[in-house]
Simulated assay, not measured.
Amino acid sequence: MIQPPVRRILSVRVHDVTLAEALELVEAFIAEGGSHQVCTVNPEFIMHARRNPDFFRVLEGSSLNVPDGVGLLWAGRMLGQPLRERVAGVDLMEALIARAAERGWRVFLLGAAEGVAERAAKVLQARYPGWVLAGTFAGSPRPEEAPAIRERLQEARPDLLFVAYGAPQQDLWIARHQPALRIPVAMGVGGAFDFIAGVVPRAPRWMREAGLEWLYRLIRQPWRWRRMLALPRFVLAVLAARYASR
């Protein structure tokens, strides 16, 4: 298996992969067996990891950290750690579902609000006929729910698990339970189920390509403003790191 180049954005590990390369790596992980974790790193992840040592360790130990966010591409250029392409988590998830339809992989959707995973599964089954739905469940990352969720997953035997509990909870949950579950690939996907199910509209393509998806989400969900404060902090941290390196 080819090991993708590793970049360091404010000391946080990110792999320089394209969407096509990430898809091939995940396929190799599933063929290899064992347990692998995929993380979709964006500027919020970077800022969380800088103040949360447990989350930093998750990103250090994961099998693949894709660069999800144009802010990472900008930071990579500023810091001499170039990244070729943004790999959005929802795009990688859909590409993997399409590949699951070809390969016969079993897929489990875990998380989001009650009923959202089921709605997302129906949309994906219409969009990519033939993939195997191993199960859906909302649940939560609360410790007291973990035994019942693990039991569901062990009975379902998925090859691919998507977890939508939001970062960093989803990624910490996967890292905590993957060794026992031994699911070949588990990936945190944030709001992907909401986008796919149509609960939350995704930004138009032109805004995504222009790096303005954050603005669209802020307009649609103004309550997110506190979370969005991570973005200017990220920019300032990158500029300070660039200055210090000079």
Results as ranks from 00 to 15, higher is better:
residue 1 M to S: 15
residue 7 R to A: 14
residue 14 V to E: 06
residue 16 D to G: 10
residue 16 D to I: 12
residue 18 T to P: 10
residue 18 T to M: 14
residue 25 L to C: 14
residue 25 L to A: 12
residue 27 E to V: 15
residue 40 T to S: 12
residue 42 N to F: 03
residue 43 P to R: 00
residue 44 E to L: 06
residue 45 F to H: 14
residue 50 R to T: 00
residue 51 R to E: 14
residue 53 P to M: 07
residue 62 S to Q: 11
residue 74 W to I: 11
residue 74 W to S: 09
residue 78 M to L: 15
residue 79 L to H: 11
residue 80 G to M: 14
residue 81 Q to Y: 02
residue 86 R to I: 09
residue 87 V to T: 11
residue 90 V to W: 03
residue 91 D to T: 12
residue 95 A to T: 04
residue 95 A to D: 06
residue 98 A to Q: 09
residue 99 R to W: 05
residue 106 R to D: 04
residue 109 L to Q: 01
residue 109 L to R: 01
residue 112 A to V: 07
residue 112 A to C: 08
residue 119 R to C: 03
residue 119 R to I: 02
residue 124 L to A: 03
residue 126 A to I: 00
residue 127 R to S: 09
residue 129 P to L: 03
residue 139 G to D: 01
residue 140 S to R: 04
residue 142 R to Q: 14
residue 144 E to R: 14
residue 145 E to S: 13
residue 146 A to E: 11
residue 151 E to P: 00
residue 151 E to I: 06
residue 153 L to S: 01
residue 155 E to Y: 08
residue 162 F to M: 02
residue 163 V to H: 01
residue 165 Y to I: 06
residue 168 P to L: 10
residue 171 D to W: 06
residue 172 L to E: 10
residue 178 Q to L: 14
residue 181 L to A: 05
residue 181 L to I: 03
residue 183 I to F: 10
residue 185 V to I: 11
residue 192 A to M: 02
residue 193 F to Q: 04
residue 194 D to K: 08
residue 195 F to P: 02
residue 196 I to G: 02
residue 200 V to P: 00
residue 201 P to T: 14
residue 201 P to W: 13
residue 204 P to G: 01
residue 208 R to W: 05
residue 208 R to H: 01
residue 209 E to G: 04
residue 216 Y to P: 01
residue 216 Y to K: 00
residue 218 L to C: 10
residue 220 R to W: 09
residue 224 R to D: 05
residue 225 W to F: 09
residue 231 L to M: 05
residue 234 F to V: 02
residue 239 L to K: 06
